[in-house]
Simulated assay, not measured.
Amino acid sequence: MSLAVEDAGFVVDTGQFQEQALQHAAQAIRNTILGRLHDDGLNHHDVQFRVKTPESAAEKMTRLDDNGELKYPGGLERLDDLIGMRVILFVESDIEAVAIALSSQFTCLDDEDKTAMIRKNGGIGYAGRHLTLQVPAENTPSGCSQHVGRRFEVQIRTVLQHAWAEFEHDIRFKGSSGDNAEISRAFTMASTLIELADQQFVNISDILKRIQSEASTEVAPEPRMLDAGALQGVLTRAFPDSRSSKVNQYDWMVNVLAANGIETVSAAEDWFNAIDPREVAKVMGYRFSPGQVRIADDLLLKFFGESYVDATKEVGSDTNRETKLRSRLRRLRPERDQA
Rank of each mutant, 00 (worst) to 15 (best):
F10H: 04
G41H: 00
D94I: 03
R30T: 09
Y72V: 01
A21R: 09
L89N: 07
Q16T: 13
Q48W: 10
R36P: 07
V91I: 06
D66W: 12
E55F: 12
G75L: 05
V11W: 14
L22Y: 15
H45T: 13
L79Q: 13
F49C: 05
R78Y: 09
R30H: 13
R86T: 05
A58R: 01
Q20I: 14
G75W: 04
G68K: 06
F90L: 08
V91N: 04
R30M: 07
S56M: 07
E92P: 01
Y72E: 03
V11D: 12
P73G: 08
L22A: 14
P54H: 14
R36F: 05
G74Y: 05
R86Y: 08
L34Q: 11
L64T: 01
H24V: 12
R36L: 02
R36H: 12
L70K: 12
Y72D: 00
T53H: 05
G15R: 13
G41L: 00
T32V: 12
F10A: 03
L70T: 07
I29H: 03
H38V: 08
P54Q: 13
H44K: 11
L79P: 14
S56I: 03
L82H: 10
P73N: 10
D65H: 11
E69K: 14
T32P: 06
I33P: 04
Q18Y: 12
A21E: 10
T14E: 03
G41V: 00
D81G: 04
I33Y: 07
F90W: 13
L82A: 08
G74C: 04
R78A: 10
T32A: 15
L70C: 07
A28Y: 11
D80S: 14
E19L: 10
A21I: 03
E92Q: 10
L37N: 10
E55K: 15
K52T: 01
L70V: 06
M85V: 07
G74V: 00
G15A: 13
P54F: 14
R50P: 00
Q23H: 12
G75D: 03
V47T: 06
Q27H: 13
L70Y: 11
V47W: 04
L82V: 08
Q23P: 03
R30K: 15
F49A: 08
Q16N: 15
L79G: 14
S93Y: 09
L34F: 09
A57W: 06
A21V: 04
